[in-house]
Design a protein around this nucleic acid. Structure first.
Length: 291
DNA sequence: TTCACGGAAGACTCCGTTGA
DNA sequence: TCAACGGAGTCTTCCGTGAA
């Protein structure tokens, strides 16, 4: 694999802050952690260009302006805007002629890849924060925890990064809109699936129940629930099966039938794909005497 | 009870059409 | 011009069968 590459002009004021951190092995393996963090007043001419760095970068514009080149697109950055990027990909960011005051953090952690994927698939890297957003304060809080290194602060920093990432994920383009509250028909469809999960449910039948065409229905269902209708049906069935495996004496064959999957081999395949173990193994795990 | 495989069915995405 | 709808093609998942 090609090596990490960086090219930069470190033009920032003397009162800028930059902390390069060495987290404990425990923090590196088990917690979210900051690798570098700072608050810059970047001068005209400041830029960074890099790729293939195992890190995720959050940059919030406090004042002034800059630009970001990422994913083959160029983004202008102004006050109140933030970006999150995967530093494995090529990136170039620079201050404008008026300078660029930023709070930033390079972060990493075990679950960050998946969360970044969630963020990245719901819009480009750049988001505009609403007035009153917690994110600027969270970055300041994270910086404060990183200034004094101890186990307590590593734990608190991990918690802060977790909240920061959650806030970022909630900033996706859909979530910014006021209409993200679960529409009535989606909530009703979810209840309908839970009532009828053991029956034969198709997209046609579901859409028909709500007098909609199936594709707009499926699109809206996934947009607001996070699951396609099919995924939601299967998850509902698997949840019921887990309950029966734990609290009943029914055989796997019987449970498959009860939850609406007549073919037991198909039931086992579905179960294993989601739970990483077979139904019988799941039952043994939960019914084993505890030490 | 579990696993592997192949055909069938369903779901998703893209894009053209329609109507406001 | 833009948003919503729906058809077509492609891809994914489901389901049945047979063997261990």
């Amino acid at each position: 694999m090609p090596a990490y590459r960086e090219n930069a002009n470190h033009a920032w004021t003397e009162d800028s802050v930059r902390l390069i951190l060495t987290p404990s092995p425990f923090s590196r393996e088990s917690l979210y952690h900051a690798q570098e963090i700072g608050r810059f007043v970047a001068l005209p001419g400041y830029f960074t260009e890099r790729e293939r760095l195992s890190s995720y970068l959050i940059v919030y514009t406090i004042a002034g302006g800059g630009k970001l080149v990422y994913g083959g697109e160029t983004h202008s950055l102004g006050p109140g805007q933030i970006f999150l990027i995967d530093c494995m990909e090529y990136q170039y960011y620079a201050a404008s002629d008026e300078g660029w005051e930023i709070a930033w953090a390079h972060v990493s952690g075990p679950a960050l890849g998946g969360q970044y994927g969630f963020y990245a698939t719901r819009g480009g890297p750049v988001r505009t924060l609403a007035a009153g957003s917690r994110i600027p304060a969270l970055l300041e809080e994270l910086l404060a925890y990183c200034e004094t290194r101890c186990l307590r602060n590593e734990l608190l920093a991990s918690a802060t990064i977790s909240i920061l990432l959650t806030e970022l994920m909630l900033l996706n383009t859909e979530a910014d809109r006021a209409d993200t509250a679960l529409p009535g028909f989606v909530a009703e469809a979810m209840r309908y699936i839970e009532r009828h999960a053991c029956e034969r449910l198709t997209l046609d039948r579901l859409a028909g129940e709500f007098a909609m065409s199936k594709y707009p229905f499926a699109k809206a269902f996934k947009q607001y629930s996070g699951f396609s209708p099919g995924e939601y049906i299967i998850n509902t069935r698997i949840s019921r099966a887990k309950e029966l495996l734990k609290y009943s004496e029914h055989t796997v064959v019987e449970i498959a039938g009860i939850v609406g999957i007549d073919n037991v081999s198909h039931f086992i395949n579905l179960f294993r794909a989601r739970e990483k173990q077979t139904p019988l193994a799941y039952r043994k795990t939960w019914k084993s005497p505890r030490a």
